[in-house]
Design a protein around this nucleic acid. Structure first.
Lengths: 331, 331
DNA sequence: GGGGAGTGTGAGAGCGCTCTCTGGAAGAAT
DNA sequence: ATTCTTCCAGAGAGCGCTCTCACACTCCCC
């Protein structure tokens, strides 16, 4: 392999100084056209590509951002297409900005320190944290150290940190109202973990609608896994056999609730209507297909990236969710 | 934010030269114990972290590797947990080696040149390509340019490039034999795209077993999507209504085949047994749960990373697959 | 006790780049 | 014609680090 050319070589070939070559490469306008052309030709001929390390060393910029998946997220990484969507969205924006995406799954012990060390020492220009738990200390630590941080998901404790979140409450409200419009009277919910903002907000949305229509909440709590969906469903049926609808806080739990209903002799949607949340691919393959609330995951990734890259103002943003009606809530 | 300390500062604090400080930081043994301790203390107190850019500049190493998902892979990224598994595996090894993972989804036009430019200019120490199509030119290009490359999936054309592949043929054979052991006589297959090695090898495995037992192949070809699974299933039933088993080349198509069978009045597994391939999470949620062939995706990621990091010899490796028997092939 | 081997430390070059500062040429104003 | 301004190109410093080389020192053997 031939050694890769340096700016020096490009400059020599173009018959200019290194400084001028640098100006051209970096798109300065203050260069005479014929010189610019000469340099560009030399770049082309030699196949020159700037050495990022050298550039970073002097500019103190890294031209890369880190996408961090904390441990709890990593655990469900394989099953949850939300993360794939976020990655895709972030990646698209990063690519357009011609920067690099450094992926960090902090799965192992000490992963946090690793991220902290790495990010606070100028190796990246910013960090996107796909945090599931709103109490995660990492965003705060990094922000205090002066690292640009944007979180996916609103922190549970009030904070001034920028984030992009889904409209979980709104989606839940729409789902529950949809069940009411379908004439359902006893609407239960399988809530998610109450230490995650998605779990909290979706339960709040459910409660808000029921409260407005003077109905009683019927709640069982799961942990977003399929198994917990099954057992929560069984518990709900035991608590109140008259249930005719369930809003399940995520599709995975809904996937567990469906067979539990079937085993209890309930038909879906005739006896019990079911709405999930997330719109994972599997939701359209269930029998009957699952009505659910879709989240703009790719869009979320894009917004996260744009904020951390300062392409748009850092803010606390909520993205709209969308009800997808399928067979599990009747026709 | 206070400026981050340099090696110079550490050396000054420890009362040694920059060279000695560097030696300690990099773990050289040829340093007197008390000096080493002094330097380590200074590192601790100042919170020193080496500047990777400066280090890379002189060592010509990047301490990072790229994980590339070419366009076709990106398209199915969201739906296919295979990629999540590979990412996790690669990430684990990278983390252990204290290097960085640069993720590149070459979704957009020009993505290839971007990877090529980036990788051939010393920005990464190696590239792992999650290539779906065996004819991908990228691995060859990079290898020729002297960049260490390892592919996931065997290239369709013979090549000396290192790769890690799943034992697709073996898995298919085991699946088909399993169907025979269950007493099935007319075993059809829904094959995957024949420009992907997974599609080719799985079909070959199917054919090999049938040939050995002097049976006729009954083949329909899909494109690994759920919809193609449905229509292929309908076609198979039209071609040969006597079919009593189907080996489907991936779970997603199997997910499409199941409702198609149901609509045709066939019970699974009583009338027709079904085996899939991949063991995606949804496979255990179908009714009945899908027998399938599991792939060690995380292990694949680990091996890919270890090879590209030169922690193990670059070779052409095939990982074993495992038959998972569930309800769709009887009890 | 002097020369050689071995060991530990420091001085200094230089990786490839950006960016400030300086200088020279050309044109405008006096 | 002289000075001032404007504009563009080059010289050179220096980002933070590694690594070679030279040097000082200790220890040992003859």
């Amino acid at each position: 392999m031939r050694a890769r050319p340096t700016l020096e070589k490009v400059a020599a070939r173009a018959g200019v100084s290194r400084a001028t070559a640098s100006r051209v490469v970096n798109g300065s306008t203050r260069v005479a056209p014929q010189i610019r052309d000469a340099v560009n030709r030399a770049v082309e001929e030699l196949g020159y590509v700037p050495n990022q390390a050298a550039r970073s060393l002097v500019t103190q910029r890294a031209d890369s951002i880190a996408l961090v998946f904390p441990e709890p997220a990593t655990r469900v990484f394989s099953d949850d297409p939300t993360f794939a969507g976020i990655i895709r969205g972030v990646s698209m924006e990063i690519e357009e900005a011609d920067k690099q995406l450094v992926l960090m799954l902090t799965g192992m012990a000490g992963g946090y320190q690793r991220v902290e060390r790495y990010a606070t020492n100028g190796h990246v220009d910013g960090v996107v944290i796909a945090s599931m738990h709103g109490t995660d200390p990492l965003p705060g630590i990094l922000a205090r150290r002066g690292v640009p941080v944007v979180c996916s998901g609103r922190p549970t404790v009030p904070s001034s940190l920028p984030y992009v979140d889904m409209d979980n409450a709104g989606g839940a409200e729409r789902a529950v109202r949809h069940l009411m419009e379908r004439g359902r009277r006893r609407i239960a919910t399988i809530a998610g973990p109450q230490d995650m903002i998605a779990g909290i907000d979706r339960l709040n949305g459910y409660r808000a609608v029921l409260r407005d229509s003077d109905r009683r909440s019927i709640v069982a709590v799961g942990d977003f896994t399929r198994e917990s969906g099954s057992s929560a469903m069984r518990q709900l049926l035991a608590d109140d056999p008259e249930i005719d609808a369930v809003f399940v806080a995520n599709d995975m739990m809904a996937l567990g609730a469906l067979p539990a209903l079937r085993q209890a002799g309930r038909r879906v949607p005739d006896d019990v209507a079911v709405v999930g949340f997330d719109d994972i691919p599997a939701a359209s393959y269930t029998e009957p297909p699952l009505s659910t609330v879709r989240q703009p995951t790719v869009e979320m990734g894009r917004r996260l990236a744009r904020m951390v890259l300062d392409l748009e103002e850092k803010a606390q943003v909520m993205l709209p969710t969308e009800l997808v009606v399928r067979g599990s809530t009747g026709s």
